[in-house]
């Protein structure tokens, strides 16, 4: 059955329309969870507000469990779901640069759009920065082209790399996440801050 668009159960234009609807859901949930506030987002790195960690991991786990169960019931063919390819060096270096951008800018791309939509000027400036950053990458592409394609590992699943089944890895991730949530709740009590 699923994924609907890949199996051509819905047309390309319906798919784009549903992308818009999914985007509304995405933006709504982000804003409702407080991801439109950069100080709330940055809180995760100082322990006063762990909302990023909680929402992020709960979201990833929910979707992961959902996909595994959907696959189990035969509702979705996991072979047709996009799995991000892994290019080791660019994934690490890109992540490091993004991390630096995160702590300086206080947003990530998705949340900056969310912040900008409710009038956060810093979010809008961050978006301008994003455009410049992408343009710089495009303009200087030959310089980092080699790095971009280095260490191609294909599209491996982390469970396979660790030699576990998807289900066992999912269970481990759930337990790790719950442990982190416990630490997060503790940290919020230890470094309290008033609402801002």
């Amino acid at each position: 059955m699923g994924p609907l668009a890949v199996n051509e159960i819905i047309s390309e234009n319906t798919n784009l329309f549903l992308a818009f609807i999914i985007g509304i859901g995405f933006g709504f949930v982000l804003e409702q969870s407080g991801f439109s506030s950069s100080r709330k987002l940055a809180g995760v790195f100082y322990g006063y507000d762990m909302v990023v960690l909680k929402v992020f991991f709960t979201g990833a786990i929910t979707a992961m469990l959902g996909l595994l169960f959907f696959s189990l019931f035969g509702w979705v063919d996991l072979g047709l779901v996009y799995i991000n390819p892994t290019y080791l060096s660019s994934a690490i270096l890109g992540g490091v640069v993004m991390g630096a951008g995160f702590i300086m800018g206080g947003y990530c791309p998705g949340t900056s759009f969310c912040g900008a939509s409710i009038g956060k000027v810093d979010g809008m400036v961050f978006i301008v920065g994003l455009f410049i950053g992408v343009a710089i990458f495009g303009g200087g592409y030959p310089i980092w082209e080699k790095l971009y394609w280095a260490q191609d590992l294909g599209s491996p699943k982390i469970s396979k790399s660790l030699g576990l089944s998807d289900g066992v890895f999912a269970l481990l991730l759930i337990l790790v996440a719950l442990a982190m949530f416990w630490v997060a709740d503790w940290a919020e009590k230890k470094f309290p801050r008033e609402e801002y």
Partner: peptide, 13 residues
């Protein structure tokens, strides 16, 4: 931050 994030997101796919 935006510039860095934009650049990094392209490198990191």
């Amino acid at each position: 931050g935006g510039v860095l994030f934009g650049w990094g997101s392209q490198l990191g796919r």
